[in-house]
Computed example of a mutant assay.
Amino acid sequence: MAKKSIDLKRVLKKSFKSQRSIGQAPGTVTYVGARQDGRYAIDVLDYSNDMFHLQSLTDVNEALTFKDNITVSWFNIVGLSNEVEITKLGDHFNLNSLVLEDIVNTSQRPKVDEYDDYAFVTLKMIYLDDDYKSTIEHCGVVLCEHNVLLFQEIDADVFEGLRNRIKNKSGRIRSRGADYLFFTIIDAIVDQYFVVSENIASQIDDLEEEVYNNPKEETAQKIQQLKKEVLQVRKWVSPVKDLISRIIETDHRLISNETKVFFKDALDHSLQIYENIQLYREMTTNLMEIYMTNMSNKMNEVMKVLTIMASIFIPLTFIAGVYGMNFEYMPELQHRNAYFIVLGLMFIIFILMIIYFKRKKWL
């Protein structure tokens, strides 16, 4: 009984470590995640149609100089475990404490919230690591009048192409407002889902070939790992289509109708990705069933060969057993060619059984 109590305490301790905000008042800014290194950095990308400026801030208070500019400012905040700095930045931009709570809660489901002076979106950024495995990072995006705040867990992201577009003044982004930047950030995250989806499809193709041609014990582990990856991606991709639909339907003053047209394209992409992930989920389940069937067939083939071999040797063993008995009076033993006769008989029986099995198509 004591052992069970100790195990229960260990489980509860682990649970509260991963969900530190349980039992706290709503709006408490408490980081929930695994990257508790305390690092924090802010890069500001400020631009207009004729101007571009990139700056790294050493103090949160420096963000105030960009807040009321008529130019568009993209604040890229890296590091969510520094709750004090996140709270300071939230106070500078008058962000609700519930928004800050969702920003630092890495288990938060993707969603969109609307306030009078800003809109807030939280979603998952999914990309491939060096081993081509899906890596999931939490991020939050806040749209203000002339500013967009992007909160990330780590430096790695999927926005390098977007930064280059802004820097090189390619496309329409420099001539549009903060709401279009808000769209391009979400669109870049959604587009990266295609890369993850294609990688999953490639893994499924490889496993299909392995399952059909040379299934091994390790194959089942690979299928199970891929299935977990698909379910994890599906968990965070599924709500994105509803999130974008709500943005399209909103009448928030900060999101123009022109930008909503582009969000419709992002909605099409999110729906396509969701359908692909659903398909891959079914395919991984079918892969496991095919693997089990092939392994069972492989075992049946082995049992079939062993059964045929045993069936062939049953009459031969019987003959050898009869003439191997140590009776004193066995007439056949006195025959001069008895050994060769019995050996020939056993060979004939062997050939006849092989012919019989061939005609039955058991061989």
Rank of each mutant, 00 (worst) to 15 (best):
M292K: 03
V141M: 04
R174N: 09
V305A: 13
K17Q: 09
K228V: 12
K133G: 10
F16R: 01
N337G: 03
D131P: 01
P110V: 05
E328S: 06
S197D: 13
I173C: 08
R336L: 12
E208G: 05
Q152L: 08
N300V: 10
I355E: 12
R35W: 05
E137C: 09
V237I: 14
Q232P: 06
G33K: 01
E332Y: 02
D179N: 04
A156R: 00
Q19K: 02
L149N: 07
I273T: 13
K360I: 08
D7M: 09
L207N: 06
G140T: 11
Q36W: 00
T28N: 07
L345G: 15
A338K: 03
E160P: 04
R172I: 15
P110Q: 06
R359P: 00
D7G: 00
Q334G: 14
N276P: 02
S245E: 15
T87K: 13
V142L: 05
V211M: 02
F183E: 03
G90K: 01
A34W: 05
L363K: 01
F182L: 03
L128V: 11
F327W: 08
P26D: 07
R359D: 01
L243F: 12
E137S: 09
T307I: 03
L271Q: 13
E289Y: 07
M283I: 15
L45N: 09
N294S: 10
Y31S: 01
Y180A: 08
W74Y: 06
